Amino acid sequence: MSTVMIHPAQTYADVEPAVRRAFELFPLELKGKKVFIKPNVLRSSRTEEAIVTHPAVLSAVIRMVESLEPASIIVGDNPGVVSYGANEESFRQTGLMQAAGSYYRNIGTDAVPVPFNPEYRQSISISKAVLDADIVISLPKFKTHGLTVITGAIKNSYGMLPGAQKAQLHKEAGNPARFHELIVDVFRIRIPDLFIVDAVVGMEGNGPASTELRDIGVILASDNAVALDGVIATMMGCDPAKLGFLRKAKALGLGDFDLDTIDVIGELKRLPDFKLPPLGGEANIQNPAIQQMLHRPTELTPQADPERCTGCGTCVDQCPASALSLVERLPVVDRDLCIRCFCCQEMCPEKAMALR
């Protein structure tokens, strides 16, 4: 039976006791070990936008790790899509650079090839800091995601891929159902040892970069990603069994999302009227039309909200397929070129791109 902690933390000033409790429930032998800490750093953003793991959570985790006398600590992630020169800028703008201090590393500059599922490609590159670590601690953010419905413990490991691989693998997956399976293949290359989820302020709606924030007031933790994501999905009002990546992870023996197999320490309650993304929710995900769409190249395409779009061109610059162009200062998608990776939606600084 797996264990998932749900500990109250009403504000980011209150996260220290929750993080300390996580280390008590899921003890790690860190003395003399190399520790890698991976927050969720989607892109450059302001702390108050709640797009990334909050610096207060990272700081609390670092303090706990330091107290356990590791040989070394590295903090890093691979934000951005095409250009990884933005790695340091993403950490700096979000406040995570200050929280990480001297432990920050640009892990996008040093990668190691590892064998991968040949259905997609023979090998992929993983940041060397991840593979060299004795202990990996993952710090996901409690958010929705347009393709995977939730982004939590398993999805956070996708950021271990440097460079433009993430967008390329979207294309090679071909449809959302296969992408659900692909992220599990990435996750199990190096399964983290501990997961601590920032759910003080979460995100609903058109995540992972939505304007719709939600005060949740908890920190979640577990040493099993499948159980943890099952609890997150349940809190969001989504049946975990409907999520392809959780079904695959369970089939591979990586854990179980069935609540009968999970010891929840804390209060598990469904968040009322929580807004799921277009592919989520009981009503939508059971709809035959949605199920048919999940198994073919998705018809969803990104469209810009003219009320929010400033015509900055970030989406055009970051599109790996060159499928976007500015027409009268508004991005327009070429449906034939679009690979439906939705990187434009993730990277838009104004949150103007939505999946329709």
Rank of each mutant, 00 (worst) to 15 (best):
F187W: 10
S72Q: 09
I265D: 15
R329D: 14
P192C: 11
E69M: 13
S123D: 11
S45R: 01
D229Q: 12
H295R: 10
A323R: 01
G202M: 05
L25S: 10
T47G: 02
T94W: 10
Y104A: 07
D198H: 03
M97Q: 11
K275R: 15
M1N: 08
A241Y: 04
C341S: 02
P240S: 14
L259T: 06
K166M: 09
L268M: 12
H170N: 06
V201N: 10
D258K: 09
D132N: 10
E49R: 11
A173N: 02
L337T: 03
P55M: 08
F23E: 08
P140N: 09
D14H: 06
K248P: 05
D185I: 05
K242G: 13
D198N: 07
S127H: 09
M353C: 06
V316L: 06
I73W: 03
R63C: 06
T301P: 00
L25F: 10
V149G: 07
V197K: 02
D263P: 06
G255V: 12
I135M: 04
G313S: 07
G108I: 06
E299Q: 08
I6G: 01
V112Y: 02
C343D: 07
K269F: 12
Y12G: 03
V15E: 09
F142C: 01
S222Y: 03
G244P: 07
S127R: 08
A99N: 03
L169S: 05
E88S: 02
R92E: 15
P176F: 10
S59R: 14
I216W: 05
L243W: 03
L254T: 03
L30F: 11
L131R: 10
D223E: 14
T261P: 03
V200G: 07
H145N: 12
D198P: 04
G244S: 05
D215T: 02
P55W: 01
V136A: 09
N40R: 09
P115A: 14
I135G: 04
G255R: 06
G85A: 12
K269Y: 13
S325F: 04
E69I: 01
M236G: 04
N87K: 04
G76I: 08
E346Y: 02
I191Y: 02
A9D: 03
R329V: 01
V231S: 05
I124Y: 08
G311C: 04
L213F: 12
D14L: 11
A177F: 08
R105C: 05
G152K: 01
V184W: 14
A56F: 06
K38R: 12
P272D: 14
E307Q: 13
K128M: 07
I339A: 01
V52N: 15
R356G: 11
M5D: 07
K141I: 07
R340G: 00
P39H: 10
H7Q: 14
Y84L: 06
C341W: 00
L68R: 15
E267V: 08
D334A: 03
E181R: 12
T314K: 06
R43I: 01
